[in-house]
Amino acid sequence: MILRIALEERLVYRGDFALGTLMRFLPIITQIFLWWAVFQSIEGRMAGYSFEDMVAYYLLSMLARAFSSMPGLASTVARQIRDGEIKKFIIQPVDLIGFMLLGRVAHKIAYYTVATVPFALVFFLCRGYFTEGWPPAIVVGAFIASLVMSFLLGYFIDLCIGLIGFWFLEVSALLFVYMLLNFFLSGHMFPLDLLEQPWRSLVDFLPLKYLAYFPAAIFLGKIPQDRLAFELAIEVAWLVAFIGLARWLYARGLRRYSGYGG
């Protein structure tokens, strides 16, 4: 039911939506040209990436971001806390975390029913950059698993930031810092392999890399197959940790919540 409402809401503006998705690939074009020029001057590979890999990486990380980004989630949660709209979750037998999650799932499904066409088009046009072709089935499986988990992880991290609103009421500054770090350290801006030590190891310890870098790295075979299970297990651990944190924040938050507004 919740799913259907959200789905219908999203499909109202599908034309605009598909066009917007295509437009989102435009900044990548300039990135590709930039990297082309850089690869011209080094003649060879950079941190294990050829030029083709680099293009493929940007396309894949874009796909991963389409799963993991949660536009407006944290600010919506914080706003609901501030205006007291959150009261409806207290009096109704509906769980906020579950309700919001379903809303987001629907949002993403709706997004993909429309966005598949432009995504498929771009990937088809750029198929030449995937020099290795399709990776083995096990890698594809891990890739899909990492995409699904990147969605969940993105959701719970954002939710936690929103729930901090129980204490601070205004989370926009915090959100901005998160967005900034996310952009830089998730691998959205560049493949994380380019980082020097000790930054490389530091980023490896953070959960942000699962939001963009990790799925792309799996697909491109940057992660050895015997380590796949281990890396995925760490991602699951992060996910569990953030689910726990979100539950705890919500429970603690409700206790100190005073229900402003009417």
Partner: peptide
């Protein structure tokens, strides 16, 4: 601060790029 931090991040990106290459484009 926020607009300056975007700028800093941008510089950070190019610092990383120049770790791996010494020029953007050959003979440019």
């Amino acid at each position: 601060i926020s607009s300056a931090s975007w700028a800093l991040m941008n510089v950070g990106f190019y610092l990383i790029v120049f770790e791996h290459t010494n020029s953007i484009g050959r003979d440019t």
